[in-house]
């Protein structure tokens, strides 16, 4: 009986030492301080800015005429996207939607129609990825909206692809 007690006490001491508990320790109690994470960034801001830029680029490209004239209906699509995104942002912020277009907002037109079309394809690809990436992270309504916009952008690439 005594031997069992000695063994049990030894085992307890060994276990405590393994766990880092000792009555002779002088270290203070460990405190974990968690820094509050910054508030999540609303993806709408980035998506709206990107859509506005792409719309302006499409408009600038369409102004070249010729083969770039087919960018005009695509610019209208992007403008619709921009309006819807602004409306959605205003809905969640309980504010008035910002205007989609403002006087003086322009970008320099591309050097040629081919460059404009190439730029439009690149922009559509980038935007499609950006909207698709957010589908899993947002509310149901926004997910459906983003999926629809991403699908539209895919069709833009199809329309602009060389036949």
């Amino acid at each position: 009986m005594a031997r069992r007690g000695v063994f049990a006490a030894g085992a307890a001491v060994a276990l405590s030492a393994t766990a880092g508990c000792t009555v002779f320790s002088s270290s203070r109690t460990t405190r974990t301080e968690t820094v509050a994470a910054p508030p999540p960034t609303d993806p709408m801001d980035n998506l709206i800015s990107m859509t506005r830029l792409h719309y302006l680029r499409l408009q600038a490209g369409a102004s070249l005429g010729g083969a770039a004239a087919k960018l005009e209906p695509l610019a209208k699509d992007r403008l619709e996207h921009l309006k819807r995104l602004l409306a959605e942002q205003a809905r969640t912020n309980r504010s008035t939607p910002a205007p989609a277009t403002q006087a003086g907002q322009t970008v320099a037109p591309p050097a040629s129609a081919a460059a404009a079309i190439s730029s439009a394809v690149d922009d559509a690809s980038v935007a499609q990825v950006a909207f698709t990436d957010q589908i899993a992270n947002v509310s149901r309504y926004r997910a459906a909206l983003f999926a629809s916009i991403a699908a539209c952008l895919a069709t833009h690439r199809t329309v602009l692809a060389p036949s």
């Binding site: 209906p73 695509l74 209208k76 699509d77 619709e80 996207h81 819807r84 459906a144 909206l145 999926a147 629809s148 916009i149 699908a151 539209c152 069709t155 833009h156 329309v159």
Partner: peptide, 8 residues
């Protein structure tokens, strides 16, 4: 137009 702004 050929494209649709919001398919579906």
């Amino acid at each position: 137009p050929v494209t649709v702004a919001f398919p579906g």
